[in-house]
Design a protein around this nucleic acid. Structure first.
Lengths: 195, 195
DNA sequence: TTAAATAATGAATAGTTATTCATGGGGTAT
DNA sequence: ATACCCCATGAATAACTATTCATTATTTAA
């Protein structure tokens, strides 16, 4: 098992993502991944410890990438509300642009409870980001001080994930990113008439 | 494979729920389920077509039960807001009282994309319920007329599921049902200060 | 050019486990 | 008591596929 991330390593990762998204982790076979990558079955074991390791590396790689973009997006916002808007838009946009990733994060990750801790789940860092944003909003006066932050952030993340999940289930046939603003409006002002 | 739902049938279903929740569908073995139910491996095949069928029957059974309670709960509400409150409270309460079910609905269902259609997913009927409630709220004037209903209902469901998911992940150690009212308040008025 | 090191191959292995089915027990009616 | 039927049993089967490793190919260094 070699260490340095070569071109072949990335090729295998992408192929695996493709096959996992199509068949799901358990039904996907090593042979399918190898064939998709254009290499022999045994070659995968020069780059990865085992099948699970491929999934781990895939998700960690994708998570890191998405996190960087999310952080950058949040930085751009001048106040809490803007930061939230950028974050949600970034989230939807990244998943829209990488459907394999969207499928895998939606279907596979929760399934691996035993390696869940090894996987840098989007959720963890995401929730921290949201905490910061909400607390800033409270300081700025744009968000209610009596918010139960632990609940509010979970509610925000749950709602985006739900929207993405529906989109994936529908085959990704409509534009996801354009739901960002309507969604943030719901977060901010709710469904109640502002009477 | 006999048809009438005997005591043994239910016994096996419950045992399966227990084992699936503990190990996950794929790692759970027929032997484990049989032993938990106190019968021989072969006996399972007198009552179920195969392993997947056990999961299907389990989820359908649970879904039916929960739906009935949800409908009853919604009926009790006099207006849209009350109905929403009852629905969310019922949802949280049912999952809190059946942790195995909560785990299975959280982790396993999304995984089976090929049989997803056979499974009466909580989501489908749930979303219909929410549509009705929101539309009623709009008529009553308690909810904004400019809501994008398809998004709003997805956002509500996503948020509850997220809250339940976190609870499951934390090992179900805190009271879930008491989050119902704070959650509905978020739905209704959002995180913004009502300035 | 040659030797050594490194990388890739894919057929064989080995472990797992869902499912089957020939057998046996126990209740019921004749 | 006997024949019959319904369940239940669990050892044997059969299929699947992740992983290994002896062999071959390719690259690098001298």
């Amino acid at each position: 098992m070699q260490k340095n991330k070569s071109e072949k390593y990335n090729n295998i990762l992408n192929s695996a993502g493709c096959v996992f998204a199509k068949y799901g982790f358990h039904k996907a076979t090593i042979s399918q991944i190898a064939s998709q990558a254009g290499v022999a079955d045994g070659t995968l074991y020069l780059y990865f410890k085992n099948k699970e390791d491929i999934l781990c590396q895939y998700t960690n790689y994708k998570s890191d990438m998405v996190f960087k973009k999310m952080h950058a997006a949040v930085e751009k916002g001048k106040n809490a509300e803007e930061k939230l808007r950028h974050l949600i838009r970034c989230h939807l946009s990244e998943f829209q642009n990488d459907k394999d990733m969207a499928v895998i994060f939606r279907s596979e990750i929760r399934y691996f409870r035993d390696i869940e801790s090894q996987i840098k789940d989007i959720s963890k860092v995401y929730l921290e980001l949201l905490s910061e944003i909400i607390e800033q909003g409270q300081v700025e006066g744009s968000m209610r001080k009596d918010l139960f932050v632990a609940l509010a952030k979970r509610y925000i993340l749950g709602a985006v994930e739900g929207v993405i999940s529906t989109w994936v289930f529908a085959g990704g046939r409509y534009d996801l990113e354009s739901l960002a603003d309507p969604l943030v409006d719901l977060y901010l002002t709710g469904v109640k008439g502002s009477i």
